[in-house]
């Protein structure tokens, strides 16, 4: 069954995509964040450009840092952003 995932973007990722969040219907056979990134990259050139260098991106599922290889499973929110630079 397809599910809806809320995707949120921050910093230059948000600026370059021109949006801070979107809801996406996830295909039932989609497993990891990496699979989703690949799918988005095929959808529009701005995703392809933002996801061109994955070493510059970090991810969080339901507000917990995770790796690009993590399964999305039943998570409700995926965040995609550059390495954090607070403090």
């Amino acid at each position: 069954m397809a599910r809806i995932l809320n995707i949120v973007y921050f910093a230059w990722v948000k600026e370059r995509l021109g949006k801070g969040h979107e809801a996406m219907e996830i295909p039932s056979d989609l497993d990891t964040i990496s699979d989703l990134v690949e799918l988005l990259s095929k959808q529009a050139p701005e995703y392809k450009s933002v996801f061109a260098d994955l070493t510059k991106l970090r991810f969080a599922l339901d507000q917990e840092f995770t790796s690009i290889d993590a399964s999305i499973n039943s998570a409700e929110e995926l965040a995609i952003f550059p390495p954090v630079t607070g403090g």
Binding site: A11, W12, P82, T85, G87
Partner: peptide, 21 residues
Amino acid sequence: KTGAPFWKKQWFKDGRSEWVE
């Protein structure tokens, strides 16, 4: 510094801005 979700952008005198790496 490395574990809380904050991002810094620098604003320069000439109006340019740049995300801190």
